[in-house]
């Protein structure tokens, strides 16, 4: 017993911080692995609708995005809802070409699994969305996903 008390009284040893980098590196690797860099900037204002019965999209590489909403720069592009494919505005007619281009990026096996995620502002009228849906049908991109934010219940 005496051995312990003598040692404790003599000097308070500093806690070793040698393992701190290890801990930080561990965290760093976690974030590096989970990070997905934002690959597209949105040219349109989108406030996604909310829903309770949502499912996660499993494989990101199989998903292509169509954004529909009013342009960010209303002074330049007006305030009518526009369609954004990749980094540019497009028309409904341009969708079939875009679908085949997106499909070319996938491997032969995944081509049938391609999913189109529709990110549409909740105040958009359905007319333009229906046009897009018909265009996707014609281009045989049949798997679609209405992108929504998950909530637990609607507050009424």
């Amino acid at each position: 017993m005496a051995k312990f008390s003598r040692k404790g009284k003599n000097k308070l040893q500093a806690i070793s911080t040698a393992s701190l980098p290890d801990i930080v590196f561990m965290l760093l690797f976690f974030f590096m692995v989970t990070t997905v860099m934002k690959d597209q900037s949105s040219l349109v204002k989108i406030k996604l609708p909310r829903a309770t019965e949502v499912k996660k999209l499993e494989n990101r590489s199989l998903v292509s995005h169509i954004r529909i909403g009013t342009p960010q720069q209303t002074s330049l592009y007006g305030s009518d809802p526009r369609i954004q494919l990749n980094d540019a505005f497009a028309t409904v007619e341009g969708i079939s070409e875009w679908v085949s281009a997106e499909r070319e990026k996938l491997s032969e096996v995944d081509k049938t699994k391609m999913t189109v995620s529709l990110k549409v502002d909740q105040d958009t009228e359905m007319g333009i969305v229906s046009d897009v849906k018909q265009a996707l049908r014609k281009a045989s991109a049949l798997k679609i996903n209405y992108s929504t934010t998950k909530i637990l219940a609607y507050e009424n």
Partner: peptide, 10 residues
Amino acid sequence: TDSGISRTLP
């Protein structure tokens, strides 16, 4: 992560 309501078009 992307999430939403999935549908298959005819």
